[in-house]
């Protein structure tokens, strides 16, 4: 399979919409193609990191400030 076709399958992989057979095709291709294997790892690492980026706390007093904004614009 050509690298370009594998790239499309890789995108399906990250969509979470890939069959077992297609997954096997990526693995088999990447065993022979260092470039695709490397690019796949870079993207997988990035997507895993993005999915796990921490949630941050909302600043204290946020609700009050929104409510003040709503009330002041109504006035």
């Amino acid at each position: 399979m050509q690298c370009q076709e594998i790239n499309s399958l890789v995108m399906k992989y990250f969509d979470g919409n890939i069959s077992e057979l297609e997954r096997e095709m990526i693995i088999r291709h990447n065993e022979k193609c260092n470039r695709c294997a490397e690019e796949f790892e870079i993207l997988r690492n990035a997507i895993d990191t993005l999915e796990e980026l921490p949630e941050i706390e909302v600043p204290a007093g946020f609700e009050s400030r929104v409510m003040e904004g709503i009330i002041s614009r109504r006035a």
Binding site: V58, F62, V66, G69, I70, R73
Partner: peptide, 9 residues
């Protein structure tokens, strides 16, 4: 914070 406040308003 600015964008979130404005969004809720």
């Amino acid at each position: 914070e600015d964008v979130s406040q404005e969004a809720f308003i």
